[in-house]
Amino acid sequence: MKFFLASLLLPVLVAAQDYGAPAAPSSSSGTTSSSAAVPTATSATEHVITVGLNDQFKFSPNNITAKENDTVTFFFEGSFNHSITQSTFANPCTYMSGGFNSGLQPAGNSFSLTVTNASQPIWFYCEQTTPEKHCGIGMVASINAPTSGSNTFSAFMSKALALGQSGEGSQTQSAALGTGALGAFASQAAASATSSSGSSSGSKSSSERVAIGAGAILAGVAAALYTLA
């Protein structure tokens, strides 16, 4: 009986070890063939922007270049709550309808954007008004702003500074929008830094699930062998 159960155990163990492993390439003797290179996907980059570092009302850095599918993650710092609020170039301190908005976030939280159209610049600002309007003192930033022409990042900053503290309706103080797709510009996600670390623990690949199932079978067979011993 032990030999019979052991013979059942061996195929299960082999299956658990070999699941998902690529098949060894076959060689054909006497012939020459050229195998086409397997295309590899361009790896996405994560860009990091710090918001309110050392209680400065600025994004660090405030102007970056990102490729399509790149992620831009904002980390909130300092004593004041800040936001990542999308605007247009023409109205740098006014929320763009349908755009992204993290809402005012305290230090320790984070906010992420995934760039879905690198050909279009993304403009944003902080909508905090305490102790003064942060956008009006230059707390603005951009992704993929043109380096020449009339709509450069410097021109965007100048427009915000021109509004100063007296621009009517320059701030929205709007609530954070829900996560989801955001047209052609970006997708967003806001999360507390303390709770996001375990967010991926519940998802497992198919190979992990098979390995876990095989482990359970092995444990059961081992228990049966032990009982018969």
Results as ranks from 00 to 15, higher is better:
Val140Ile: 07
Arg209Glu: 12
Gly103Glu: 03
Ser33Pro: 00
Phe76Glu: 05
Ser166Pro: 12
Tyr226Phe: 08
Pro61His: 02
Thr172Gln: 06
Thr85Cys: 05
Ser192Gly: 10
Thr73Cys: 00
Pro106His: 01
Gln171Glu: 14
Ser150Ile: 12
Gly164Ile: 09
Ser79Cys: 02
Ala211Ile: 13
Gln86Met: 10
Ser28Met: 03
Met1Ala: 08
Phe75Lys: 15
Pro39Val: 06
Thr40Lys: 08
Ile217Cys: 00
Thr129Glu: 12
Lys204Asn: 10
Cys93Asp: 04
Thr227Cys: 10
Pro92His: 02
Met1Arg: 09
Lys159Met: 01
Ala181Val: 14
Val12Cys: 01
Asn151Ser: 12
Ala229Asp: 07
Ala90Trp: 09
Phe153Gly: 04
Ser83Leu: 02
Ala141Gly: 13
Ser112Gln: 12
Leu5Gly: 00
Ile212Thr: 15
Phe75Pro: 00
Ala36Thr: 05
Ala36Phe: 00
Ala186Tyr: 07
Asp55Pro: 03
Gly103Val: 04
Ile143Asn: 00
Val210Lys: 01
Lys58Tyr: 07
Ala41Ile: 14
Ile143Phe: 02
Tyr95Met: 02
Gly198Val: 15
Ala219His: 06
Tyr125Gly: 00
Leu13Ser: 04
Thr85Ala: 00
Gly167His: 03
Glu77Ser: 09
Ala23Met: 12
Phe89Ser: 03
Ala141Ile: 10
Tyr95Thr: 01
Gly167Met: 03
Phe156Asp: 04
Cys126Ile: 09
Phe76Ile: 09
Phe4Val: 11
Arg209Asp: 08
His47Asp: 05
Ser170Thr: 14
Ala222Ser: 10
Phe185Tyr: 13
Phe153Glu: 01
Leu225Asn: 08
Thr227Leu: 14
Phe124Asp: 03
Ser207Pro: 01
Gln86Arg: 05
Leu5Ala: 08
Glu168Cys: 03
Ser192Arg: 12
Phe156Leu: 09
Gly136Ser: 02
Cys93Gly: 04
Gly52Glu: 03
Ala41Cys: 11
